[in-house]
Simulated assay, not measured.
Amino acid sequence: MASPTSSPVAVNSPTPYQAPAEKPSAPPVNILASPIARTYSYVHPIVLLTLGVFRFEAVVSNPVEELLSDLPWLALLQIEEKKKAAPRSPSGPTVTLRPGKPGLRRKQSAGKHDWAGVWAKLMPAFMSLALTTLLATPVLAALLVLFGAPLTTHNAETLLCGAHMALLSATGLVYTHGVDSAVWKEVWGISRPADAVWGAALGTGLGAWFGAIPIPLDWDRPWQAFPITILAGAYIGSAVGSLISRTPFLYGKRIQFAPEEADEDEKKTN
């Protein structure tokens, strides 16, 4: 009696786990090609520096009152810059195809189109300003305390310093990138490609860092009081960073931390 033969059963070998593909990094932000946008992109840093220079003595004499009164002007400058950099809607009344009847067109109401265009430009700017005020300001104020700002005194100065730094750095990032988690990971990791927006943000932080150097020195000058030199450095850093980061030498490049050491560690593990 012949014994039954079993047919071979194919066994699927376990496939290695494949991590989901990472979202590609957002490209650097380009300045629009229109003459108005390009001109204002250079005028805006100059206006910021001019504001800081002409209001410096008033800030030294009464920091809280002056910083509070300058906040609306700084917010207006930042919103106006974003509006200038925003893509423009096509001029003239738009036409849309009537659904179901190809080739037949109808004109939209000019009034509705105008209001929609204005709202489309203003809404992102105001939303970025609101998120900057509600989120970035307390975060930067807390970072100032962690880096040595007084905790039990000068609370108003710390909060106003954080508000000015937030407007200088975070407004443009929120406006151009929204709340994209991948972009903000690059921001906190200091790995964004260089552009005018990222350059202004990074320059604000570096300028504030170097601006804190004169505070502990024994010069006995009124302008050494917290947070005057920190804000002066933040304004200068924001303007300089916005200008130099768009140059061909830096545009689109990223900061790399000690690549030689990383290569040596990789060779040792291999």
Rank of each mutant, 00 (worst) to 15 (best):
A2I: 15
S6Q: 13
P8K: 10
V9P: 02
V9T: 11
P16S: 11
P16K: 13
Y17W: 14
Q18E: 12
A21D: 13
K23N: 08
S25Y: 01
N30K: 15
I31F: 14
S34N: 09
I36Y: 14
I36W: 05
A37M: 11
Y40D: 03
V47Y: 09
L49K: 02
L49Y: 13
T50L: 15
T50E: 12
G52F: 03
G52S: 04
F54S: 15
F54V: 15
R55Q: 15
E57N: 06
V59F: 05
V60W: 04
S61F: 06
D70Q: 08
A75D: 02
A75C: 11
L76E: 13
L77R: 06
Q78F: 13
E80K: 01
K82D: 10
K83G: 04
K83I: 14
A85M: 07
A85S: 05
A86F: 07
S89T: 03
P90G: 00
S91D: 08
G92L: 09
G92H: 06
T94D: 13
K101D: 10
G103S: 10
R105K: 14
Q108V: 07
Q108T: 14
W115G: 13
A116Q: 07
G117A: 04
V118P: 08
W119M: 06
K121C: 09
K121I: 05
M123H: 14
M127S: 09
S128D: 05
T133F: 05
L134M: 11
A136M: 02
A141H: 01
A141M: 05
L144Y: 04
L144C: 06
L144V: 12
L146K: 11
F147D: 11
A149S: 11
L151I: 10
L151M: 10
E157F: 04
T158W: 02
L159R: 03
L159E: 06
L159V: 14
C161P: 03
G162A: 05
G162N: 07
H164R: 05
L167H: 01
S169T: 03
G172K: 00
V174P: 04
Y175C: 05
T176N: 08
S181R: 14
S181H: 13
A182C: 12
A182M: 11
V183H: 11
V183S: 13
W184E: 01
K185H: 07
W188G: 00
W188A: 12
W188F: 06
A194Y: 08
A194Q: 10
D195Q: 08
G199I: 00
G199V: 03
A200V: 04
L202A: 06
G203M: 04
G203W: 02
G205V: 00
L206Y: 00
L206E: 07
G207H: 00
W209V: 15
F210S: 07
A212V: 09
I215H: 09
D218S: 15
P227R: 02
L231G: 05
A232C: 11
Y235K: 02
I236Y: 04
I236H: 03
A239L: 07
G241L: 02
P248T: 11
P248R: 05
L250I: 00
Y251C: 02
Y251R: 01
I255V: 07
I255F: 13
A258W: 09
P259M: 07
E261C: 14
E261P: 10
A262M: 13
D263R: 06
E264Y: 09
D265M: 10
D265L: 10
D265E: 15
N270L: 15
